[in-house]
């Protein structure tokens, strides 16, 4: 029965001007237009959004959780990238 199944789309909503689009969920749609309409009806029934992005789920590439260590741990030790790493004399202003 999967022959007539509509593809899966991921939905991103901008909740208000000034904020970025945020992933809210997914849905089925035959085409992009249909996906936007469906997203409007499914995910913005309570005024949750002012702008919608949709993308077919199969087009998203994700990082591999197995590689999370090598991808993300190295950043943990680079504490010099954070302002709190540096000492400044007491009383210095605007820094």
């Amino acid at each position: 029965m999967s022959s007539n199944e509509w593809p899966l789309w991921e939905v991103f909503i901008r909740s208000k001007q000034g904020l970025s689009h945020k992933h809210v969920g997914s849905l089925r749609a035959a085409d992009a237009e249909n996906a936007i309409n469906n997203a409007r009806d499914v995910y913005t029934r309570r005024s949750e959004g002012i702008s919608i992005w949709v993308v077919e789920s199969k087009l998203i590439s994700a990082s591999d959780p197995k590689e999370a260590d090598s991808l993300f741990d190295p950043a943990d030790t680079k504490i010099y990238r954070h302002p709190t790493f540096y000492e400044v004399p007491d009383g210095v202003l605007h820094m």
Partner: peptide, 27 residues
């Protein structure tokens, strides 16, 4: 109407969650 419609939405959110585990909605 709005209430029953919400339930359709709930079904949909949940099917989406199940699909992240590799379950096929229509199946």
């Amino acid at each position: 109407l709005a209430k029953v419609q919400d339930e359709a939405g709930h079904g949909l959110y949940l099917y989406s969650a199940a699909e992240t585990l590799g379950s096929d909605r229509e199946a």
